[in-house]
């Protein structure tokens, strides 16, 4: 499975989940998904929302998610931005500078190999590391918000390193409008 297909599948999974329970991604929910009927998600209080657009359109959130990459991964119990992650975040920063109407919510996550409360703090540390990197590349901090889900929102459900690697992530969720 190539990266592109994986990203598409993930986006679909996110959209479905978000419809099951509107709070699934908190205030960031509106940015990433479409409901199964094809319409945009309903925005809750303070929720930014953005049409995904086509992945071929470089100014679209779909392009951001799939061509640039909406997420970076971390080592165990670390929040250091790896050289590989820097490349992704450089692309994210460039996109956010070019598309100045969009805001972003950075979601920090941890794998299940840790205690619940510590992982909430660790997720915030990771989200913040991404925010600081984007700010260092010129993105105004007012356009960025962080939220941590600790280990409560795994994207991969197995209990071995292949899944833990995917779950130790920070996901940049694009939203239009102002952040609450």
């Amino acid at each position: 499975m190539n990266k592109f297909t994986l990203a598409l599948l993930l986006t679909a999974a996110l959209a479905t989940s978000a419809c099951t329970r509107p709070d699934r991604f908190g205030a960031g929910a509106g940015g990433a998904g479409m409901d199964p009927n094809g319409g945009p998600l309903t925005a809750g209080a303070g929720v930014g929302q953005a049409g995904l657009g086509g992945a071929n359109d470089p100014s679209s959130p779909a392009y951001f998610n799939q061509a640039i990459g909406d997420r970076v991964l971390f080592s165990v119990d670390q929040s250091t931005i790896s050289p590989e992650a820097q490349t992704v975040l450089d692309g994210q920063a460039q996109w956010l500078l070019t598309n100045a109407d969009y805001q972003a919510v950075i979601e920090g996550h941890a794998d299940e190999q840790g205690t619940r409360e510590y992982n909430l703090a660790l997720g915030e540390r990771r989200a913040n590391a991404v925010r600081e990197y984007l700010v260092s590349r010129g993105v105004p901090s007012a356009r960025l918000r962080t939220v941590s889900y600790g280990k409560e929102r795994p994207i991969a459900v197995c209990s071995d390193a292949s899944c833990y690697t995917q779950n130790r992530r920070a996901v940049t969720v694009i939203a239009a409008g102002s952040l609450s």
């Binding site: 409360e117 703090a121 915030e124 939220v147 941590s148």
Partner: peptide, 26 residues
């Protein structure tokens, strides 16, 4: 802060201790 979590009551129930995360620091 960006988030507040892990609340617990004091022994007389009048106070709450908790964590606040902000700027990567809790």
């Amino acid at each position: 802060g960006e988030m507040a979590f892990t609340p617990r009551f004091s022994q007389n129930g009048s106070q709450v201790i908790y964590s606040v995360a902000s700027g990567g620091n809790t």
